[in-house]
Simulated assay, not measured.
Amino acid sequence: MYVAVKGGEKAIDAAHAWLAEERRGDLSVPELSVAQIREQMSLAVNRVMAEGSLYDPDLAALAIKQARGDLIEAIFLIRAYRTTLQRFGGSNPVDTGEMSCDRRISATFKDAPGGQVLGPTFDYTHRLLDFKLVADGAVDPADERAVETETTPHIMSFLNKEGLIEDDVATDGATPPDLTREPLELPADRSLRLQSLTRADEGFILGMAYSTQRGYARNHAFVAELRVGTCCVEMEIPELGFAIEIGEVEVTECETVNQFQGSKTEPPQFTRGYGLVFGQTERKAISMALVDRALRWAELGEDNVGAPAQDEEFVLYHSDNIQATGFLEHIKLPHYVDFQSELELIRKLRRTPETHMTEAAE
């Protein structure tokens, strides 16, 4: 049992004041604004929105500033704030086929239908420090920005000319459970697993995905398509009788193609892995797709080879960085009573052999 300890309020207030000073830093350096964080640290903002389950770049940027750049603390702030928001309803499923793509690539087809759009990416940059950024100079405008404004068909729709890939699993029309409002229960269906993965810690999911590539799940994947862009969000209005657009969100979507040996009921064919994350979050989306495919071993009739990425309970229960942080960091809080009881036990155990030796000598 944990109890509040009185008497440390002044120390806590002083710690808060010191934290504010450290957050501000050297007063001779201009303060970093929320707008600057939102516009110039967009990948960090995207991660906070994705793992915080709240799409609001301004609030995510504010959380990053308040957390001094600690992204997990910022995610915690966003999730806590999210619980205070009133829920008005649910939007319609986002149609990523209608996405306006800033970036769209395929590792399976060189001449992908709709073309390859490289977009803003580190993929082709040299990993060398650019000291010109220290000079605060103006950024050279891009020579050409290719943005797909028309409907860009999914490559998967062109892949199955010979029936070589499994059909896309359609839902039965039922509303999937909401992980942000209901606790995770196992076994989880795929919709619930995907919810868990999309807000899971990026580093953890990356490690799980990497393990599958190294042989701990027999999960050899190809990226059929990776796309980044904006999608319209629509919501049904009962009073109107039709859906209206309420905004746009930037998302990253990844679809992978994986080998499948077939089963008693299914012929050999390719199978799918899927990832969808807020913002430009490519590493997370690809990792999510690999882990999604690894977790599908049972429904595909494959053998469980004991890989960590195939263990639904292990992956889903340990991937949430807020739960992990809370359980980890609570051990730095006062445990005086617990420790004193263990300390006394150790002392008693150490005294017992000495007593027995003394009695034997006598």
Rank of each mutant, 00 (worst) to 15 (best):
M1L: 09
Y2G: 11
V3Q: 15
V5R: 13
A14Q: 11
A17R: 12
L19T: 08
E22T: 04
G25I: 06
D26G: 01
S28Y: 09
R38I: 07
M41H: 04
M41I: 01
A44L: 15
N46R: 08
R47A: 13
L54W: 14
D56Q: 05
I64Y: 00
I64L: 02
I64C: 00
K65D: 01
L71K: 07
F76R: 14
I78V: 11
I78H: 08
R82K: 11
Q86N: 04
R87P: 14
S91V: 14
P93D: 13
E98K: 09
C101Q: 00
D102W: 13
D102Y: 12
R104E: 01
R104W: 00
T108D: 04
P113S: 05
G114D: 02
T125Y: 08
K132V: 05
L133M: 10
V139N: 13
D140I: 01
E144N: 11
H154T: 14
I155Q: 15
I155S: 09
I155F: 15
S157N: 15
A170C: 04
A174N: 12
T175H: 10
T175E: 14
L179K: 00
R181M: 11
E185K: 15
P187Q: 06
L192E: 07
L194E: 01
A200L: 06
E202C: 13
F204M: 03
I205V: 15
G207K: 11
Y210L: 12
S211N: 07
S211G: 11
G215V: 02
Y216E: 07
F222S: 07
V233S: 05
M235H: 04
I237L: 06
E239M: 04
L240N: 08
L240A: 10
A243W: 00
E255S: 09
E255V: 08
T256S: 04
T256D: 02
V257T: 02
P267C: 11
V277L: 05
G279L: 03
Q280D: 06
T281K: 06
E282V: 12
R283G: 13
R283C: 06
K284H: 15
K284R: 15
A285I: 02
M288T: 03
L290K: 13
L290A: 10
D292A: 00
R293D: 03
G301A: 04
A307K: 10
Q310Y: 03
Q310L: 00
D311C: 07
E313G: 07
I322L: 03
I322H: 03
E329K: 11
I331F: 08
P334L: 02
H335V: 07
V337C: 12
F339E: 09
I346D: 12
I346C: 12
R347H: 10
K348F: 13
R351I: 05
R351M: 09
P353C: 07
H356I: 08
